[in-house]
Structure formats: structure tokens, C-alpha cells
Design a protein around this nucleic acid. Structure first.
Lengths: 239, 239
DNA sequence: TAGTGGTCTAGACCACGAA
DNA sequence: TCGTGGTCTAGACCACTAA
């Protein structure tokens, strides 16, 4: 019992140093000097290796930058990796109110394309969820989502308010990595009717595979009204 | 002189250990055990901190995985960050032969949109390069590239065989980070004629800003034939 | 010359996992 | 119980930078 408390509450020294430096440096301009390693050694009464461990963490997370012979300084913020988001968050970022109208929600047998994308066998149970997605009340996107039923028992019983990503997050299955195939094409008659455009109007089509850990959680096909939606992607690191 | 030689050729111990482990582990299945830290200590006759420094590097590059109390093991390969590529490499990856027909290549005064994207002042000199890009001889894309003339003196004199990214790489200005705005829309009459499609046919439009270090090197507007081109993007980390 | 980060040693104790 | 990685010490010498 005591052990647990001690273990849980003991502040590791390198963590203490790390967080001290983090708060010191928070809000400073890039190029501002951080305390030197030996200064931290005397301040915390700790070995230099311990300080280096703390600083290593801050350097590798991109907060600090080492300049041999000169010192350690606040690094300029680096462009990070784009975190995958779903329709709801995408719209909220644009200041639009996402809405969702469920057109279909049922268990189906996976077809060949969906089965391959989900990494399951053709005919396995999948939850197929088709929604007309609006932004500020205007039709924006027609979206078919396919989920591996085995991973999400009872999932389709729940009422989904808006965000599939939020619902997956509650089960610890929010995709951390997605692969999109983006194309363009004319609207079919059905799509045109639902999205309230002319048949043949250009649509932006996105086929997505959403992966969490080692498993593909979601496969979706979305058709966006091209006159209302532009997709933003950032690729690469640093900058 | 001697110092230089010594400095250049001395193999740092942690590097020796790191590379030894890397070759040991190369090609092994994920989950295979790496040598223990104390084993490496005795093998190389170095301190444990030195071994840890070596292993830290391999862990943070995603090659190894530590399991406290168990050991260190080969990590499953993680999905990395997508490196930005240009049209030429994009086509080569698909097994297609990229070709380029320059329609226009001249110095212009930057318009408001291009100036803002390049981070320069309206009216500053930019190199405008308009190309019809083919894959295996078939029209694929109409591309306008705008380059900051100040960054690339004499650049437009050179004959560009195909790849702008390769040419920029030679000057150390290959974009390491890009931002794309992807939309769809109907082909104008001019676009239709060049791309050999009907007027109004759906095109996939990509507005790109290519950044290297702290500067925006390139801004481009591309219009792809939607019947021939699908764009692939991967977002997020790990998997 | 003094201060900085980079590297390295030869130990130590701890919590955890497997046998 | 024994081996593992996690943490930590109290020093050391080096190359580099700036005054």
C-alpha cells in the first residue's frame, strides 16, 4: 500500500527538472536561452546525466535546441504532423455547425472492397452507416462508413449524435492514422438528389481507411459538394 | 591537421554500439529480442550509460522497443510521415513515365494571391512556369508553378528536364513540408482543350504551398484529369 | 580563458517480469 | 531468485564558442 503511494507520488528527478525548464521556457521567443546544464545541476543538486536526460526529452519533443559550445535555446516551433479528424471536427474548425442525418444503419456482409480495406474476410459482419452530413444546415457530404462489427459489439445500437470519431475514441479506437484516396467525379442521380445539386455536378470523393494501432477500424466513402468543400492536407515534417 | 583526421575518423563508442545493434537486428521479425544492455556493456567494454545512449537512439527512431523487466525487442515498423513529392516522382511511383511540356516560363510580378502564399510583396518578381504534364504520353495535369525569383537567381535560364523538386533539391531548396488545398471543379474551355477532355469535365484541383526550412519556395496550382488521377494522402503517426 | 554541450566511466538502487 | 530496463551519482576529458 505504502509502496503504491510512494511509487505514484514520487516525482522523478529528471521529470522535476524537465517540467521546471518547460515552465521557464513557456512563452519565450525562439532563440531565448534556456538554463545551462551545469546551472540546473547546482540548482537541483542533481547529477549532470539527470539534467541531460531532462533536456534530451525537451529537445526531442522539439521545444529546445542545443548549440554545442553556446548553450541550449528555445527552438522555433516546428510544423507537426496533421492529426486525422472526422467530418464533425472538420466542420467545427471552419466555424460551421455539423449535422447528421442517418439514412441507413445496419449490419451487412462485407463486400470484397470493404473486406479488403478492413482486413477481414468477405462476408464477415460489418456495420454500414450511411449519413447525409450538413454544415450550418446545408448539404455538404454523403458518407458511407463501414465498421468491423467484431471490434465494436453493440456499437450500432447506440444513438450516434454526430461524431463517429468521438464515439470510437470512447472505445479507445479513434483512428490515429488514416489513408485517403481523393478523386473527383460527377454526381449520380441519387447523390444529386440528396446533396441538392444537378446530376453530373462535380463532387470531391474521399475513400478513407482509418487505422488505430494495428487494426483498420473504419472504412468510409464520402462525396463532398465541390462547390462547398475544399480539403486541406499538410504533408511532411519540420518546415 | 592531425586533429581533423582524428576527429573525423574516431568512431564514437555509442555510435559503434548503435550500429552494431542495428546490423544485428536488421531483417529480424518484430518481437525478436535485441541484446540486453548489460550484455553489450561486457561485449564492448563500455559503461552502461553509453549503451543506453546507443539504444535510446534506436528506440527513438522506432527500430527498437523497450519492455521494462523483460528486455529490448525489435519494434513493429511504424507508419511514418509522408514525404512530399512532385508530379514526376508521383507518376514514377505508379509506374508511369512522366513528361512535361512547357507552355510558359517567364518572370512576372506577383499577384496578390501568389504574393501572400509565397510570403513576398505584391509586385515582387516571381518565376511563373506553366506546364502540361503527361503520364505515358497521356495528358494528366495542367500545372502553374510560381517560384520566388529572389531565392533562385538564374533558375529559369536552366532547361528543366522534368522534375521541379529535383531541381530545387540541387539548390538545397526541396520542400520538406507542403500544404495542399484540394478541390474539384469543371474544366474551363482552355483547360479542356489542353487536357483533351470535354469542357465542364470534372477536374481535381490542387493548390500547393511548398516550404523548405522557414521559407515558402514554391506555390502551384494543378488541375488533374479526374478520370485518370486519384490522389493518395496519409495523415497521422504510428498505426 | 571560461563556459557550453558531447561523450564516457564505474559504480549504485529500484520496480518489474519470468522461472 | 535472477535478469531486465529505469533512474541516478560524482566525477572526468573533449571540442567548440565567445569574450
Amino acid at each position: 500500500m505504502d509502496d503504491v503511494m510512494v511509487t505514484r507520488t514520487r516525482a522523478l528527478k529528471h521529470v522535476q527538472v524537465r517540467e521546471y525548464v518547460r515552465t521557464l521556457v513557456d512563452g519565450l521567443e525562439p532563440g531565448a536561452p534556456a538554463p545551462s546544464e551545469r546551472e540546473l545541476v547546482t540548482r537541483f543538486g542533481v547529477a549532470r546525466m539527470t539534467v541531460r536526460q531532462a533536456m534530451d526529452a525537451l529537445v526531442s519533443e522539439g521545444l529546445l535546441e542545443r548549440m554545442p559550445g553556446k548553450g541550449t535555446f528555445v527552438a522555433r516551433p516546428r510544423r507537426g504532423v496533421q492529426r486525422p479528424i472526422g467530418f464533425s471536427e472538420e466542420m467545427q474548425r471552419r466555424g460551421l455547425q455539423p449535422e447528421s442525418q442517418t439514412l441507413l444503419s445496419r449490419i451487412e456482409q462485407a463486400g470484397p472492397g470493404v473486406a479488403r480495406a478492413l482486413g477481414i474476410t468477405e462476408g464477415d459482419a460489418v456495420l454500414h452507416w450511411r449519413r447525409l452530413r450538413r454544415a450550418d444546415g446545408a448539404p455538404m457530404c454523403l458518407q458511407d462508413s463501414f465498421l468491423n462489427e467484431v471490434l465494436l459489439p453493440g456499437f450500432h445500437q447506440k444513438h450516434m449524435p454526430t461524431s463517429l470519431f468521438d464515439a470510437l475514441a470512447l472505445r479507445g479506437l479513434r483512428p490515429t492514422w488514416v489513408e485517403d484516396a481523393i478523386s473527383a467525379g460527377p454526381a449520380t442521380a441519387d447523390e444529386a438528389a440528396l446533396l441538392e445539386v444537378e446530376e453530373g455536378a462535380p463532387l470531391l470523393r474521399v475513400a478513407r481507411r482509418g487505422v488505430c494501432g494495428e487494426v483498420t477500424v473504419e472504412v468510409s466513402r464520402s462525396a463532398y459538394r465541390a462547390d462547398r468543400f475544399t480539403m486541406w492536407v499538410q504533408l511532411g515534417e519540420d518546415g
